[in-house]
Nucleic acid binder design. Structure first.
Lengths: 245, 245
DNA sequence: TTAATAAGACGCGAAATGGATATAAGGGTG
DNA sequence: CACCCTTATATCCATTTCGCGTCTTATTAA
């Protein structure tokens, strides 16, 4: 049977279809570390383990719409930067049924993250511990604010690892760092986000030069308040990035 | 209804489920240009347009296994570098039914590409024309060897565009370029691959330095044959990349 | 033997980077 | 109010990387 004949003769109604779900990685930077919001599973399988908030994709709903709906349902949130990550389709990834899961990550500034935690008390804050460097990749561990390990359900440790990997790769050519910051932020705060995602310390003058030369930042002239030392200037993301002058 | 209750009460059997397919972007570099293998659709919808080879995912088969099976069925090929690209889930992307498609790209050296074309005569070679630069992204156009436009079916122009975008991003930190070359290759051939993917000309001495310093190449001491001028040295990919000395 | 062609080596100035140091600007303290 | 403490911001310098032109080398064809 050739490929064309196969396609022609195939009737999707004849075959059993998998369920399709979206799982959401709600991420932020908390105390200089990458963090995510997890749910404690209260039934089998993986009872007591921690999972990502998710939901099934309806027949008349796009993947992005499903992710958006779950974001609203689980985190009481109607707008956030989110992006499709990867689709997990191992046959036995969920022992209950064949469920293919499309992973999404959503990036939240710390203030929105706290709001989500307040609005949805079933969510738990987890610090992500990345046991590898650079672009190596692999699973990550989750840890509670008290430092206890939070064992992850299903293949969610891999999803979280892939999210970190993706963030590292996109950090310096995309705007993902800005999605993790409030509208106005200092260069130090931006550097903290970069360091938290990359897991390494960066050189301050070099970072500052790189960011300002990239032409994606706009100085506001305003300064932060409340510091008991010299206040830093506040920047915002520039809508139309300009070439360096 | 809280998120947890939603999950608990949800029975996947109650809801209509979408079909899940994989679509394969079989790519290579032909005449210094990125190229892909397409199928001409001989029925509605999009009759006469050109599509990516694909197939449905069986209930007891992982996504990777489905991609591998389609690769074997459509391109008569049992091993190739392939990687999941993105999952396309717009509700109306296929007017026949709700089909969520997981896009994969497979990278083939030119020789394997020609074999695939011979072994599967229903496949057509298409040059990819990328109408944007750098990391902009967007759809791409396909063109036959004779230069005629090959209009693409469904959302396949977007899939091809995303594949180019992904390749550009991964080019210098991953081994994707090697998957497009035979085991032994010259530095010029490696540069040609980079230039074809990036769509820009690169500086020769700088490229050479960068590649050799990266420690991912191994000189064989052998030289290419058949050239009517100075033959270039042949290199191979080094298994265990070493730091630069 | 010579011409043609492309590989590969070398060198130089520009640009980017890492790191240290100096100066500025706030609030807190006496 | 003078001084101190802390962090932001600016400047400088050495090192590395990068772009780019040029020179030499290896091979075939004439």
């Amino acid at each position: 049977m050739t490929g064309v004949e196969f396609l022609r003769s195939y009737d999707p109604e004849e075959y059993e279809r998998p369920s399709v779900a979206v799982d959401l990685i709600l991420m932020s930077i908390v105390h200089g570390k990458p963090a995510a919001l997890l749910l404690r599973r209260d039934e089998h399988p993986d009872l007591g383990r921690w999972s990502l908030p998710g939901g099934f994709v309806a027949i008349d709903e796009s993947l992005d719409a499903a992710a958006s709906r779950v974001l609203a349902a689980k985190a009481r949130m109607t707008d956030a930067y989110f992006e499709q990550l990867y689709t997990f389709g191992a046959v036995d990834r969920d022992p209950r049924a064949r469920i293919i899961s499309v992973g999404y990550f959503a990036l939240l500034p710390p203030a929105r993250f706290s709001e989500a935690l307040k609005g949805a008390p079933e969510l738990t804050l987890a610090e992500l511990v990345v046991p590898w460097e650079g672009e190596t990749g692999g699973a990550v561990k989750a840890r509670s604010a008290e430092g206890d390990a939070l064992p992850l359900a299903f293949d969610h440790a891999d999803m979280l690892g892939l999210a970190i990997l993706r963030l590292r790769g996109k950090l310096d050519y995309s705007g993902v760092a800005f999605a993790l910051l409030p509208e106005l932020f200092t260069l130090r705060a931006l550097q903290d986000v970069h360091e938290a995602i990359l897991g390494v310390r960066l050189n301050k003058p070099a970072f500052r030069r790189r960011m300002l030369d990239a032409g994606r930042l706009e100085a506001t002239g305003e300064r932060e308040t409340g510091a008991s030392f010299r206040p830093a200037e506040l920047y915002r993301r520039r809508k139309n990035p300009q070439a360096k002058e």
